[in-house]
Simulated assay, not measured.
Amino acid sequence: MRLARTYSAVLGCVVELNRIRTQNESLWADVTRLRDQREVDPLPQGAAQVSARERPAPRSPKRSNLKGDYSLIIGSSHKMLEIFQVLDRISNSNAPVLINGESGTGKELVANAVHHNSPRRGKVFVSENCGALTETLLESELFGYVKGAFTGANKDHKGLFELAIGGTLFLDEVGDMSPNMQKKLLRVLQEGVIRRVGGKDYIPVDVRIISATNKELLEEVKAGSFREDLYYRLNVINLRMPPLRDRRDDIPALVEYFLAQLEQETGTKKSIDPPALERLARYSWPGNIRELR
């Protein structure tokens, strides 16, 4: 009898994973169909990103056919316009999004763009860097805690999942989560409820999850350091942010924008000579936009 129950449980997990894989493949096939349009309707060139707290860049005519508002993302490069077209298709969805890319490529800014062009735009966008906190702190931040749960817990505290109800929760560096936290996050995604640290009550949470990583999570899955079932839950829609070295034509627009910001901050006119700009365009920028800025 025990063997039969175990077999039934394993079979149920396999069926669930196959369902998620099928859903992922269907959604991503629709998204990536945009790339096949290049031969018929080639995309123009030039783009990049800046902090969401800064003023919008002027809208490029090359982006006139886009539905969404991506004014906080500079330029109109071929690769970034491809990203924008994908964003146009996925923003109205509630499906989880996984953003891959090197550090400094603007993953959080793109996550913001997904949220602010979605039906959840009127609700809160909350973010957390999963690699910056210990497991215990991350659990408390995400799920909250009740009074008396630990020393210093003097009152009930809502976690980010509760704060983001109706909106979007952005989990940066999700690949750095511990195995235990991966398990707890998976349970939330499966059941749609959370339980505060030290609490007994389950709280329903309607939250869209956008996650990001600079790791290749599929390789982490193969290495046994990231859960396969969680990977397929997060990677329903995948976006891959290109590094700046693959978008060198974006650099002049970025430099112009950052110089304008510097001028605004200092009150002093800033400019760059063409030879210097050419040298910047030839550099490989391992730190991407963050290094250029």
Rank of each mutant, 00 (worst) to 15 (best):
L3E: 09
A4M: 04
Y7M: 09
V10D: 03
L17H: 02
N18K: 00
N18Q: 11
T22D: 07
N24Q: 13
N24V: 07
E25W: 11
T32V: 14
T32I: 10
T32N: 12
D36V: 02
R38G: 13
P42F: 11
Q45D: 15
G46P: 00
A47T: 14
A52Q: 07
A52G: 15
E54R: 10
R59I: 09
P61E: 00
K62M: 12
S64F: 07
S64T: 10
N65F: 06
K67L: 03
S71Q: 04
G75P: 02
S77V: 00
H78E: 10
H78P: 05
Q85G: 15
V86N: 09
S93L: 15
V97F: 07
L98A: 02
I99H: 00
I99M: 01
E102T: 01
K107D: 02
K107L: 00
E108R: 11
E108G: 08
L109D: 03
N112Q: 10
N112E: 06
A113E: 04
H116A: 06
H116S: 12
N117L: 07
R121H: 10
G122H: 13
K123Q: 08
C130Q: 11
A132R: 05
L133C: 06
T136I: 05
V146T: 13
G148W: 06
G148K: 08
T151L: 12
T151E: 05
G152I: 07
N154P: 06
N154W: 04
G166E: 09
L169M: 01
L169K: 09
F170E: 05
M181V: 14
Q190G: 12
I194V: 10
R195W: 05
R196N: 09
V197W: 05
G199Y: 10
P204A: 01
V205Q: 07
V205N: 04
R208Q: 08
I209C: 12
S211L: 04
T213V: 09
E216F: 07
E220W: 01
E220S: 07
Y232K: 02
Y232E: 05
R233M: 09
R233T: 05
N235Q: 01
M241R: 02
P242W: 08
L244T: 04
D246T: 05
D246E: 14
R248E: 00
I251S: 06
I251G: 13
P252C: 03
L254T: 10
E256N: 02
F258N: 10
F258P: 01
A260I: 00
A260H: 11
E263R: 11
E263I: 00
Q264D: 03
Q264H: 06
K269A: 15
K269M: 12
I272D: 14
I272G: 15
P274A: 03
L277Y: 09
L277K: 08
E278M: 12
R279M: 15
R279G: 11
A281G: 13
W285A: 04
P286S: 08
G287D: 14
G287R: 11
R290S: 14
